[in-house]
Design a protein around this nucleic acid. Structure first.
Lengths: 123, 123, 123, 123
DNA sequence: GTGGTCTAGACCACC
DNA sequence: GTGGTCTAGACCACT
């Protein structure tokens, strides 16, 4: 019950598994859910948990590392890189902007957008 | 500026092009941006516009058809299937809920979420 | 209510419509359901009934004619050719052979095959 | 002679090759000739044997998979899906019924039908 | 003109 | 080695 965030791979999704995984981990890191210096699950354990080959997870970690989101130290596992998490406020703003763009595509006006958010927040 | 909604394919995204396209069109239909009986661009035109092979776009159209979102007739063309789009209000609510969930993952409270949306809306 | 045998085209079947039609008519002729000198439905009427373009039905008739199953006389419509229907007994035998082959593929032995036919015939 | 059931493609048949193949494999699976978990031939081997392009066989396998008859795993191979084949007795009865219907269309009575089957079975 | 399919060779993802 | 996809050009079926 160490409560690690649930990572999943959907085999029906044409997006390759290594990329599905990469996106989830990148999000968790950028969102600060995985804080700098936190350890990622060991390659083999994650592979076993998800029913993937080790090489597939290795590919994910490699991509994250070359993006600078993660650091693999030899013998020391893989940890979240220090300098890369962005301020949560910036991420929040970005997400809000994406939501608003989408809502407008749907034809919603400002008032409807505000109302929808209010409805979801409850009160 | 009466142009059709912009469809794009990102060649750096490991998600296969036919799937990127499929998602965009499925969204446009579900969002009601493309209304029932609206015509989709001809295979070859869309392929040319996006720099894709004809077969790739054909695959997208085929998938959309087998999902019941679209109807293709030989010699006819491809049109949005009737009675498939959901009420925009429902879709808007769903999107708002997804945004709020994301924002809370980031650690934002209700007030911050409201503020972020307000900031984006201007005013 | 002239009781013409029902011809149908399944648009979900990848077999082209002209070929679906051709097979049905060829069977009807070979089986003797359509007797020598019987008239086939007029091109345009059949096309209208099936929701096909005239050219598509024309293609079917053309194929039947070049197979010698049918004769188009100018101004006189299309009729079943005289010399082509095979003795029903021969066709029956052929069909029985096909059925037996299939049944054996399923692993059935002679007794099971006989029993299955008896069961269908009732009594 | 332990060879796998013969698959063939008739290039004179207007039915597209991927569909001819699909039907044959679907039949073999439904008939139980290919049992659950049996492996299908590798894409490229089957393509080579039949003189088809790889993509054509891939299309067949994809259709079978989306019909739930087969499961393909990347790097794994393609196998018959479990719990899909119908009881052979049911299939046999269905085939017998189809044969009888056909025979009656030809004008045969019960006795003639029985006789035709007996003749084929050899005694 | 519009959708549907095929080929041939190539590259990718996965085990 | 096995499945999955892409391209480029070609031909077919249909309206």
């Amino acid at each position: 019950m160490t409560d690690r965030p649930t990572l999943t791979v959907d085999t029906d999704d044409p997006t390759p598994p290594y990329e599905q995984l990469r996106r989830q981990l990148a999000d968790l890191i950028e969102y600060g859910v995985l804080a700098p210096d936190d350890r990622l699950p060991p390659l083999r354990q994650l592979a076993a948990d998800l029913g993937l080959a080790v090489g597939t997870v290795a590919r994910t970690y490699r991509e994250l590392e070359s993006a600078g989101l993660v650091v693999s130290r030899r013998g020391g596992g893989t940890r979240v890189a220090a300098a890369r998490s962005r301020p949560p406020a910036a991420v929040l703003h970005e997400r809000a902007a994406a939501f608003v763009r989408d809502a407008r595509l749907l034809g919603a006006d400002d008032e409807q957008i505000r109302a929808a958010v209010a409805a979801v927040l409850g009160t």
